[in-house]
């Protein structure tokens, strides 16, 4: 259960800068965690973002998007659809709608861990790291593009478990597929690009409810796409932290996003 966070004047003072994307990464994560438990602060951020959107009404010299840009977007969408639909398959709207419906249904089953984020955060701070982080050797040799394709295939494999990792405040930003043999794949669905001094790091969570152990599953880099990793098949969840490059042996930050396997 998510316990409402009391108002914190220090963090409240950061909400304006948060709405303008004007916080350092560390502070942004602190505010994310705060917002997860404080509905009043969330409402204020929504209001502040509306203000920020008004600022964007100010045009530059040319407020027309290049005509060819939509063509590029449409081509990419077609490329996205091609592997799922299959060669010669039905590309009609009904088929696509059904595919979308299935995807959304899966999304519902993936537990959004806004409520659990604070608990995982507390657990991670006290976590014991069993092994040093791996460097995603599989991902390096396989390549991100292949890892993305492998992610899709793994999701269809027998016994595959999938979770969507959500930040403390907001929708899911990454998905993980874990196969029974402990091999897994992570895919970025919304992790913002970090500066060169920071990196995302994936942690596999194991241990007991009162003593979570975080095992590094890999350093993902500042702007990940997809990656493969290997971990114990009996983990009960995953978390992503933002760490100083080149990564750390033990999590130094509360999770930016997390999820428990069901």
């Amino acid at each position: 259960m998510n316990v409402p966070a009391p108002n914190d004047p220090e963090l409240d003072a950061l909400l304006g800068a948060y709405a303008l994307d004007a916080l350092d990464t560390d502070e942004r994560i602190r505010v994310d965690v705060y917002l997860a438990g404080n509905a009043r602060a969330r409402d204020e951020v929504d209001e502040l973002r509306e203000s920020a959107a008004s600022l964007a009404l100010a045009p530059v010299d040319d407020a027309t998007a290049p005509p060819e840009l939509w063509d590029r977007i449409a081509r990419t969408i077609q490329d996205d659809l091609a592997p799922e639909i299959g060669s010669g398959g039905d590309t009609g709207g009904a088929d696509l709608a059904a595919r979308r419906t299935r995807r959304l249904a899966r999304s519902v089953r993936w537990v959004s861990l806004v409520a659990a984020a604070a608990a995982v955060a507390a657990a991670l701070l006290a976590a014991q790291v069993i092994s040093l982080h791996h460097r995603l050797d599989d991902a390096r040799t396989t390549g991100e593009k292949d890892a993305a394709a492998a992610f899709v295939r793994a999701g269809r494999a027998a016994g595959a478990r999938q979770v969507a990792l959500a930040p403390a405040h907001g929708a899911a930003v990454a998905r993980v597929v874990l196969l029974p043999d402990g091999s897994g794949y992570v895919k970025n669905d919304g992790l913002a690009r970090l500066d060169a001094e920071h990196t995302y790091q994936l942690w596999a969570l194991t241990g007991t409810a009162d003593r979570t152990v975080a095992i590094s599953a890999g350093v993902l880099g500042p702007n990940p796409n997809a990656a493969a990793f290997r971990t114990s098949p009996d983990v009960h969840g995953f978390a992503i932290t933002v760490e100083r490059s080149p990564g750390v042996a033990q999590p130094s930050q509360t999770p930016y996003a997390s999820a428990t396997l069901t």
């Binding site: 964007a56 009404l57 045009p59 040319d62 977007i73 969408i77 979308r100």
Partner: peptide, 24 residues
């Protein structure tokens, strides 16, 4: 969300200009 690309195109036609201006 139901897979209508033309609906995305309509949203693009409404908002891509100011979005592009902001990014630029």
């Amino acid at each position: 969300a139901e897979g209508d690309r033309l609906a995305l195109g309509e949203l693009y036609s409404r908002h891509a200009g100011p979005c592009f201006a902001l990014a630029r």
